[in-house]
């Protein structure tokens, strides 16, 4: 046995020991989410693509000297060139210009309807979860019925009633698509209602509203945001679907859905008319999907160390 300094064999003082490691390392939740989201390359690419699309939707149409609805019968069906970057359509309108005007419409519809579904869903879900009993049962039955029929059928029915147009589309989505969000929020509210901190807060006399705002809301938020991302995807697709069957945006206004629809009609002779809108719509859906997946992984408590 090798010899050591005798001094090393004196007792260790309590203060010299490391304290127990507290497991609740309080890295703020959202910075943690961001840290994990940032390391997710596909999701970052998705964000970059979307941001670019939004920027182009804003400045794109003014980058060329054409109007999206300006008919020019002397230059119909022109292939992409330095004149018309994405070519022109049957009425000689500039497709680059129309794509970005269409982007404004499609993205606006998608984002606004996702937001309004979110708000409606949160309100109905919280009411259902917090009140419980009969109210809860009736609301949930209603949700079950809404879910039993595919949303495109509901939306189509509403569109027949409301008539075509941007507002109608937003209204139709908002009225029929809150069900998933409501279910999610209700489930989470029910779960959180039983947790210790909610009970503790309640017994300490916190008002219901304060409870929602301070405790329940921050906890549901991650789930809600993830779900809303996927709802944007749904709305983009829904708008395209409606425009394709002729219940959506009406001319001369345009949207990505309409552009794809007319592209399909002209595909055999003028494939570029389908190519550009199809690529943009697909890239947008892809980006949203990647962002949604990234957010879901980043906010998933199971994935946190």
């Amino acid at each position: 046995m090798n010899n050591h300094k005798q001094q090393l064999f004196t007792p260790l003082d309590r203060s010299e020991k490391a304290g127990p490691i507290l497991e609740t390392e309080t890295i703020a939740f959202w910075s943690d989410v961001w840290r994990r989201f940032r390391s997710n390359k596909p999701a970052l690419i998705g964000i970059i693509i979307l941001v670019l699309f939004v920027i182009f939707a804003i400045i794109g149409p003014s980058m060329v000297s054409y109007q999206y609805d300006k008919v020019d019968l002397l230059s119909t069906y022109e292939k992409p060139s330095s004149e018309h970057w994405f070519g022109t359509d049957a009425l000689g309108r500039d497709i680059w210009c129309r794509i970005w005007v269409g982007a404004r419409v499609s993205l606006f519809i998608a984002i606004v309807s996702a937001l309004s579904q979110m708000v409606i869903g949160i309100i109905i879900g919280s009411i259902s979860g917090l009140s419980g009993g009969k109210v809860d049962m009736i609301i949930m039955r209603f949700v079950d019925i809404l879910i039993a029929i595919p949303f495109l059928i509901w939306v189509s029915l509403f569109m027949m009633v409301l008539g075509p147009g941007m507002l109608s589309i937003i209204l139709a989505f908002s009225l029929t698509q809150w069900k998933g969000m409501a279910r999610l929020v209700r489930g989470e509210v029910l779960r959180l209602k039983e947790t210790e901190f909610a009970i503790a807060a309640k017994t300490m006399g916190a008002s219901t509203w304060r409870l929602i705002r301070k405790h329940i809301f921050p906890n549901v938020l991650p789930l809600v945001i993830v779900s809303a991302t996927f709802q944007v995807t749904n709305a983009i697709f829904g708008e395209a679907f409606l425009s394709y069957i002729g219940l959506g945006i009406q001319p001369p206004m345009t949207s990505w859905g309409r552009l794809v629809a007319s592209g399909i009609a002209e595909m055999r002779s003028f494939s570029y008319m389908l190519f550009f809108p199809a690529v943009f719509i697909s890239l947008t859906m892809l980006s949203l999907q990647l962002i949604g997946d990234g957010l879901r992984d980043a906010t998933d408590p199971k994935m946190r160390q």
Partner: peptide, 18 residues
């Protein structure tokens, strides 16, 4: 185990025992 040990000595923190 040094940090949790009631009988820990200086050496326990510095060198791994045999």
């Amino acid at each position: 185990f040094a940090d949790r040990c009631e009988y820990a000595m200086r050496i326990c923190k510095e060198k791994e025992p045999q």
